[in-house]
């Protein structure tokens, strides 16, 4: 958890409406290089939408997303290059069904980063080894368990050498016995100095790993701070109520 004071990403007054429904009312926060940030909060509160607005899977209705001080929503900003630098791990893994494990980790490198086949393969293998999936390079996604697929998805994302890695509830779709293997991979990643923003319901994990935590509810950040501040001294009554549900965990 090496943290510097260099702000790598900042969200400024992000708003997002779907039709009549305003999902994000006003979200602003800064993420420093090397920081591990987690977003928690009730379902439907806007956690995932916030994350999806960061890498532009959703187009914010208003506001700014600044990457190294430049607004990525500006018309002439190259979004594909930005997206390559901001990796994403999905709840449903979303491995490419038409490609095997190795190809899943190589295709982005070759097409977007224009790496040679050999280089891409080497990097993919290194990262598959990191997540303990090097034995499955020729397997197709449908042949793997959920936990294995998610580990491959992480290897795919880090093979792009991203500056920030986003996790959208990475363990929510997993059977309980597979949650551990994915969380331990994420913990290992956290030690490498990679900037990570994680939406999760795993409170113990969040408490252990986070430098900074955000509690998002009804489209606004109702509370933010260190894990100690949120878990031990919550100020907002929504936070108190939400966390009380996890007391027994």
């Amino acid at each position: 958890m090496t943290e510097s004071n260099e702000t790598i990403l900042s969200l400024k007054n992000i708003k997002k409406t779907f039709g009549e429904h305003q999902v994000l009312k006003d979200i602003s926060f800064d993420i420093n290089k090397g920081e591990i940030a987690t977003i928690i909060g009730p379902s439907g509160g806007g956690k995932s939408t916030t994350l999806r607005c960061i890498n532009l899977l959703e187009e914010p209705t208003a506001g700014e997303v600044d990457f190294h001080g430049k607004n990525v929503l500006a018309p002439n900003y190259n979004r594909n290059i930005y997206r390559a630098k901001v990796g994403m791990v999905f709840q449903q893994f979303d491995l490419f069904e038409n490609k095997n494990v190795l190809a899943n980790c190589m295709v982005g490198q070759e097409l977007v980063l224009k790496r040679s086949k050999d280089e891409a393969r080497k990097i993919a293998m290194t990262n598959l080894k990191k997540v303990g999936m090097e034995q499955y390079v020729n397997a197709r996604p449908s042949q793997l368990s959920g936990g294995q697929q998610q580990r491959v998805a992480i290897a795919r994302a880090i093979s792009m050498d991203p500056e920030i890695l986003l996790f959208d509830e990475p363990t929510s779709a997993l059977d309980p016995e597979m949650v551990g293997e994915v969380l331990s991979v994420m913990k290992n990643l956290a030690t490498t100095g990679l900037t990570m923003i994680i939406v999760t319901h795993e409170m113990a994990f969040a408490k252990e790993i986070s430098d900074q935590m955000f509690f998002i509810s009804d489209g606004v950040i109702t509370e933010q701070g260190t894990p100690d501040q949120l878990f031990n001294h919550p100020q907002n009554e929504k936070t108190v109520k939400f966390l009380s549900n996890f007391q027994n965990n």
């Binding site: 594909n80 290059i81 930005y82 997206r83 630098k85 990796g87 999905f90 979303d94 490419f96 982005g108």
Partner: peptide
Amino acid sequence: GQFEAASALGMT
């Protein structure tokens, strides 16, 4: 999800 995963990698 297949579209999104590809977009997230920065593919055109």
